[in-house]
Amino acid sequence: MVGTGDILKFLAQGFFYPDNEEFIEKGSSALLGLAQDLKISLPQVDKIPTLLEHQSEFVRLFMAAPGGVPAPPYASYYINSQKLLFQEGLEQVMEYYQKAGLEPASKSEPPDHLSLELALASHMIDSGHFALLDDFLHNHLLLWYPKFEKKLFNAGPSWWFKLLGQVTGKLLKQISSMEGGSYEKA
C-alpha cells in the first residue's frame, strides 16, 4: 500500500539531484498520476527528459544559472531577510529534526534543503508524529514553500519540475488543512 509518507518520499527524491534515468521515467508516470489524483491540470508532455537534460535543468533551477539560482531550495534563503544560506531557516528545522530524533544522512546538503524537509515530513507521518507534523508544516515548511514554488514557476521550468512543484504544493496544503487528530478517526 502506498501512503502519504511514500508520496512525500517520492517528492523528496524528485527535488534531489537526479542520478538515474529509471527514476525519471517511472517518476514521470507517478508524477502525472499524482497530478491527476490531486486534480491538477496536466501539462502537455512532449517527451520524458533524458538524464542529462533533467540534470541540466535541475542545475539551472536549483544550483547555478545565468541570472543566479532561480529557486534556491533552502528554507534559510526565504526566511532570512538577507537571503543568506545556513541561517534562521536552518535553525528552525534543526529543532524539528531533534524532536523527531533524526538528522540528514549526508552533509552534502544543509538540513533545510527541500528534499530533506520533505523526507522529514514523510517520517513524521509514517511514525505517527502528527502534532509535530502540524507544527512543522504550519510554523516552518509552509512559511517558505509557497515562496519557493512561486520562484520555481517564474523560472519557466520543464514540465517535470513544474508539475513536481505543483503536486508538492497542493499535497502539503491538503495535509496541513486536515484538522489535528482527525486522521486518527478513520
Binding site: G33, L34, A186
Partner: peptide, 17 residues
C-alpha cells in the same frame, strides 16, 4: 480520514509509485 493515506490514489499512480 487518516493522514497516512488520505489521498485516494488511482491504481496507476499507486503502481507507478
Amino acid at each position: 480520514m487518516r493522514r497516512r493515506d488520505f489521498l485516494k490514489l488511482s491504481a496507476s499512480t499507486t503502481l507507478a509509485l
